[in-house]
Design a binder for these strands. Structure first.
Length: 271
DNA sequence: CCCGATTCCTGTAGGC
DNA sequence: TGCCTACAGGAATCGG
């Protein structure tokens, strides 16, 4: 999926045209997603003005006067604008029609994404209530990461990908951040010093910020609201570079499985 | 509680 | 070309 930079890129792409627009229609062609699209979503959303398009973790929040639509892109989801009347293709599961002469189209081949509705505070929704801090926020520091890792024997990479610890860091950016911080992805989270955790928290922030500037990473099927790919793929230093020379020491990049996920690192630079 | 494995789904790349 | 397997950016859930 889209990790945090891709979701943020999507948010920035759709927010200008969506904010202030009135939803004039909702078409759901497929309700079987990660969770079923609520039967009431059409009635709740129609006629509402989108007051703001926000992001919490990897969820996009379309706030209206009466409630909030929550969108998660899963592994393969995209949101993009199409002109009214555009014939839907395969996996175009939901259209949100607006009076801004555009239709927000939700496509998701693998259907790991979701579209939910909440009447209350979305931040208190069960899926959002217990999440860790935003990685780009002030609450995510080396001290926080260090404290949240005491006594943990889990490898730092899956630890970093645990949304209860910190949100938004998926498989690509976990590998990239650990490389930049010089930390071995298999090292036990509880055995990393405060100094190195500070380096790691700063690496996470800089990698995510840099990726957002590039419009995210497109491996195969991520496109922003305008249908354009992200260009951070060219800036990846270890992800997908198995066998290539490390940019720092020229040692071949190694690929291993960690927590059932492909993990890329330099065995010489990362300890 | 912690942690690793499994699961949901489709598309694609690679081996033969 | 076709068939088969493995794997893909997420994350809830289950079981040890």
């Amino acid at each position: 999926m889209p990790e945090l930079p891709e979701v943020e890129t999507t948010r920035r792409g759709i927010a200008p045209r969506l904010t202030g627009a009135t939803v004039t229609g909702v078409i759901v062609r497929e309700r079987r997603m990660r969770w079923p699209v609520p039967a009431a979503i059409e009635a709740r959303l129609c006629g509402q003005i989108v007051k703001a398009v926000e992001r919490r973790a990897k969820y996009l929040l379309l706030r209206t006067g009466t409630g909030t639509a929550m969108v998660h892109l899963g592994m393969s989801g995209t949101l993009r604008f199409v002109t009214p009347g555009t014939t839907p293709g395969k996996h175009d599961h939901v259209d949100i029609e607006t009076d801004a002469d555009c239709v927000l189209r939700f496509n998701d081949p693998r259907r790991f994404g979701c579209l939910l509705w909440t009447d209350g505070n979305p931040l208190e929704h069960p899926l959002l209530a217990r999440l860790g801090p935003e990685p780009l926020g002030a609450g995510f520091t080396g001290a926080f990461l260090h404290a949240a890792s005491r006594g943990r024997r889990i490898a730092i990479k899956p630890h970093l990908m645990n949304a209860a610890i910190v949100v938004g860091v998926g498989n690509i950016y976990a590998s990239e951040s650990l490389f930049r911080a010089g930390i071995h992805p298999g090292r036990a989270a509880g055995r990393i010093s405060l100094q190195r955790m500070t380096r790691l928290s700063e690496a996470v922030k800089s990698v995510l910020q840099e990726s957002i500037r590039y419009g995210g990473t497109t491996l195969r099927d991520f496109y922003n609201g305008a249908g354009k790919p992200g260009y951070f793929r060219n800036e990846l230093q270890v992800y997908g570079r198995t066998g290539e020379a490390c940019i720092r020491c020229r040692h071949p990049i190694r690929q291993v499985l960690l927590g059932q996920r492909s993990t890329f690192y330099c065995p010489r630079c990362q300890t």
